[in-house]
Design a protein around this nucleic acid. Structure first.
Length: 251
DNA sequence: CGGTTTTGACCTGCGC
DNA sequence: GCGCAGGTCAAAACCG
């Protein structure tokens, strides 16, 4: 009889535990929803501006870093994209972990920025024409500006898991834009997806990780928001990251 | 030992 | 033509 009583007590404790967990997940879902709304509003604002430092320009004239002369023939010269990545301020390497494997072939100090610019070539595929330049942002030394030239002739899959799982990088709003629009909430996308579920994290990165082949951020985001799996995976990632914060603060 | 990084030299376009 | 600046080369060093 006493044994049965103990079992009931244990079951009640379990139910209570699950109820709390449920409550937490409900709260996190709300947080995720509000963040999603902010992200969408931010995107619409960006579309309206039609300018910006994070750009997939397709080689438009606004890019003041267009190459003066390609020394070797570049098959797809019009595919240029730029991303800003926040890194650990203590980390002074010019490494942007984007899922591809890069070989550094040069470094140069440029006139407009005392921080050296590093030149990388994609080394995942022998004939891959993609190059990238990485330089620290003038305004914020903890931010790296990565400029991608060309289009990969292969997928990033295969090395993504290890590459991004250790990354602390964030794709962020560029500092100069933030200063131009102080009231705008900043959007941070944590690519490290810190959390206990390694498999989910890997799946998330492999399915939704940054892909230079996409034509525009808009198309990319549209495809993501239409995908129910993305929402579910994003929820898991947000929940995971928030659960592991020391204290939750309600909005 | 093979792949990667470092770094000085070199090449070329552009402005004057 | 000259100097400057950005981009690339390539040999040596480094690393796993």
């Amino acid at each position: 009889m006493e044994k049965m009583f103990l079992q009931v007590e244990k079951l009640q404790a379990d139910v209570e535990c699950l109820r709390k967990e449920n409550e937490t997940l409900r709260f996190l879902l709300g947080v995720m929803r509000s963040k999603y709304d902010v992200l969408q509003a931010h995107l619409q604002e960006r579309n309206a501006e039609q300018t910006g430092l994070i750009s997939l320009t397709g080689g438009s004239g606004s890019d003041n870093e267009t190459n003066k002369r390609p020394r070797t023939e570049v098959p797809t010269p019009n595919k240029t994209s730029r991303i800003f990545v926040r890194t650990d301020p203590r980390d002074n390497s010019l490494v942007v972990k984007d899922g591809y494997q890069w070989r550094k072939y040069g470094q140069k100090v440029t006139k407009d920025n005392p921080s050296p610019r590093a030149y990388f070539r994609c080394s995942m595929s022998p004939g891959c024409p993609v190059k990238k330049k990485v330089q620290r942002c003038l305004e914020d030394k903890s931010v790296l500006l990565a400029t991608y030239d060309g289009q990969h002739n292969h997928s990033a899959h295969g090395s993504l898991g290890g590459a991004l799982s250790s990354s602390t990088a964030y794709i962020i709003s560029p500092p100069s834009m933030a200063s131009n629009h102080p009231p705008r909430p900043s959007i941070s996308l944590d690519l490290s997806l810190s959390g206990p579920n390694q498999e989910n994290r890997r799946n998330f990165v492999e399915e939704y990780g940054y892909n230079n082949n996409n034509n525009s951020i808009e198309e990319y985001l549209a495809s993501l928001t239409k995908d129910p799996n993305f929402t579910a995976t994003l929820a898991a990632a947000v929940a995971s990251s928030l659960i592991h914060q020391p204290k939750l603060s309600r909005i």
